[in-house]
Each structure stands twice: as C-alpha cells, then as structure tokens.
C-alpha cells in the first residue's frame, strides 16, 4: 500500500491550522492580559502604555509615523544594499586572491570587533547628521555575514566539480562564473538573511547616535518625554519591518535556490 504523495509532503489541514492558530491565540491572550493589567490601574499609564493606547497612537499619528518609518526603511534598505555589494565584493576578493586575504582579513574581523555602540557617535561626528553616517553604520553591521557567506560559499565548492571543470577546459574566471558563484548562492543568501535582521536594528542605532528623523529618533526623543504609546508604536513598527524584510529574503531564497529547501527537508 502506497500512501498518497500529498500526505507525505505536507501535514494535514488540522495540523497546519494549529501551526497558525496556536501562536495567534497565545499572542492575543498576552495582549489581553497586558491591557487588563494597565486598565486595572496597577501601573501608572504614563509609564506603561497598554495595547489599546498603542493602537490608538498608530491610527492617530499614522502619517507622522509613516514618514519616520520611511526614513528608517530607506536607511536600512540602502545600507543593506551597500553591505550586499561590499560583502560580495569582499568575499570574492578573499576567495580569488590569497595575498589580499592575508592582508585584509584581520582588518575585516577588526571592523566587527570594534563595538558599534562607541563607533556610531564617532561616525556621526565624521559624516554628519545626514543619511551617509547611517548608511555607513548599517553597512558595517550588515556586511560581515554577507562577506563570510560569500567567502564560505565560494570555498565550499566540491573539489571534484572543480577538477571536472578543469578537465573540461574551463579557466579560473569561467569556473567562477559557471560553478563557484551559483554554488555559493545558498550561503550568500544565508548571510543576507542574517544581515537583514541587523539592518533595521542598526539603522535605529545610527539614529540614536544623532539624527533628525526616523523611528530611532522618535524612540530616542520620546522616551525621556514619557511619550510611551508613541515609543511602543515605533518599536512595534520596527519589529514588523524587520520580520517583513526577513520574510522577503526567505521568499527570494525559495525562488532562487529551490534545491536547498529540498535538501533540508530530507
């Protein structure tokens, strides 16, 4: 007796529902408890905002929040793009040239060893309050996983496949283009996924160090002013944006490297 393919490849409808329903229910329950806690007057509503207040703020201040979200989004995405270009370039360089690898690897690791907390204000002093400093900070935070992913991915190429390419008469560059680069794609995208989680966090961080707009600016300014609902709303938007970016990378991964998903499913 052979089981139908459908039942092997995906869980039954009930299980799938539970996968969504259970966490949703848990979240709602938590929010309800929080709201009840605040409404009961157990804490000062000036210090802790309830979900209701946050929702109200999201609606009332939509256009203002949207403007700051766009500012942060621009910094995060452009910074990630910069990190992507630099990371791939660095990974390729490290792979192709052993001399440059030896010369620059300590420097690259060094950029990660210096704590961004102390670096960020210095970069703002150097580059000013504009977007440049933000892009540099986001790029520093995001470029490393991409560079490491690219380098590892290129290095992970099957030596027998390289031998085959050599026997087929392919030179260094052609082997890189036909075999090593596409083979590195899963690890490159893995690096991008990690970098994506850092993009928004580091953009907010850069805004903390000095800015005139953005969600980080809102949070940094709002916290001492006890604008708690607004700060909570900004944090909520940040979390959602980070998750959305992560999901977008995951979708790209599924599209570009369908074979990887199969391997991990087995």
């Amino acid at each position: 007796m052979i089981a139908p393919r459908e039942s092997l490849s995906r869980p039954p409808a009930g299980r799938r529902m539970r996968k969504w329903l259970a966490p949703a229910a848990a979240t709602l329950l938590l929010l309800a408890a929080w709201e009840a806690f605040v409404r009961a007057g157990l804490v000062d509503s000036l210090l802790v905002a309830g979900p209701g207040d946050v929702a109200q703020t999201l609606i009332d201040e939509f256009s203002m929040l949207a403007r700051h979200t766009l500012a942060t989004g621009r910094e995060a995405l452009l910074g990630l793009l910069l990190a992507f270009v630099l990371g791939i370039g660095a990974g390729l360089t490290l792979h192709v040239s052993p001399l440059l690898r030896d010369a620059t690897l300590p420097l690259l690791v060094g950029t990660q060893a210096v704590p961004l907390v102390v670096l960020a204000p210095l970069l703002v002093i150097a580059f000013g309050y504009g977007i440049t400093a933000k892009l540099v900070i986001v790029a520093i935070a995001c470029f490393f996983p991409i560079a490491v992913g690219t380098f590892d991915g290129l290095r992970s190429c099957d030596p027998e496949l390289l031998r085959l390419m050599r026997s087929l008469g392919a030179g260094r560059m052609r082997t890189l283009r036909l075999v090593e680069l596409p083979g590195a794609l899963p690890r490159v995208l893995g690096g991008v996924r990690i970098a994506a989680t850092w993009a928004f966090i580091s953009a907010v961080f850069a805004e903390y160090a000095g800015s005139t707009e953005g969600l980080g600016y809102l949070i940094a300014r709002g916290t001492p002013l006890l604008e708690t609902p607004r700060v909570y709303a900004a944090i909520l938007i940040l979390t959602a944006a980070s998750l959305a970016l992560w999901s977008a990378v995951a979708v790209v991964e599924r599209r570009l490297i369908p074979w990887e998903r199969r391997d991990s499913a087995h």
Binding site: L164, L185, I257
Partner: peptide
C-alpha cells in the same frame, strides 16, 4: 583530447 567522466555525476542543481 580526453573527456573525463567522474565517478559521481556532479550535476549542478541550479
């Protein structure tokens, strides 16, 4: 000129 066929098929998934 030699055409080598290795032990493993070495097909690339992409």
């Amino acid at each position: 000129e030699v055409a080598l066929m290795p032990q493993r098929d070495l097909l690339v998934p992409w």
